[in-house]
């Protein structure tokens, strides 16, 4: 990812986690890092599409940026397929797979 001209807002990290376990959420959506998408835009997409808080969206965005990818959502197969196409419509590079498949 890349950085635009604006400075970062430095919001606090949220502590709670609302993700379920891999057992009841058997499929995941991975978003992959790329050198073009703006860090701000990726955060915006996670807030806009998934309804995540600013802090959670930012944490996932940084995970994509620093680790090369992040599991940003989970659910049944139909849901993760839908989420994957939605990420593509925003121009993010996403794939879906079975949780724990590596």
């Amino acid at each position: 990812m890349t950085v635009g001209f604006a400075t970062d807002t430095g919001t606090k990290e949220e502590v709670k986690s609302e993700e379920g376990t891999a057992l009841d959420q058997p499929w995941i959506v991975l978003v992959w890092n790329d050198p073009v998408n703006l860090m701000s835009y990726v955060s915006f997409v996670f807030q806009d599409y998934f309804g995540y808080s600013e802090a959670k969206a930012r944490r996932l965005m940084l995970e994509v940026h620093e680790q090369g990818r992040s599991a940003v959502a989970s659910g049944n197969r139909e849901k993760v397929e839908q989420d994957t196409v939605a990420m593509h419509s925003y121009g993010l590079w996403a794939t879906f797979e079975k949780a724990g498949s590596e």
Binding site: G4, F5, L38, D48
Partner: peptide, 10 residues
Amino acid sequence: LQESLVQALL
């Protein structure tokens, strides 16, 4: 332009 638009959206 996109950065300024996204900052405005945020």
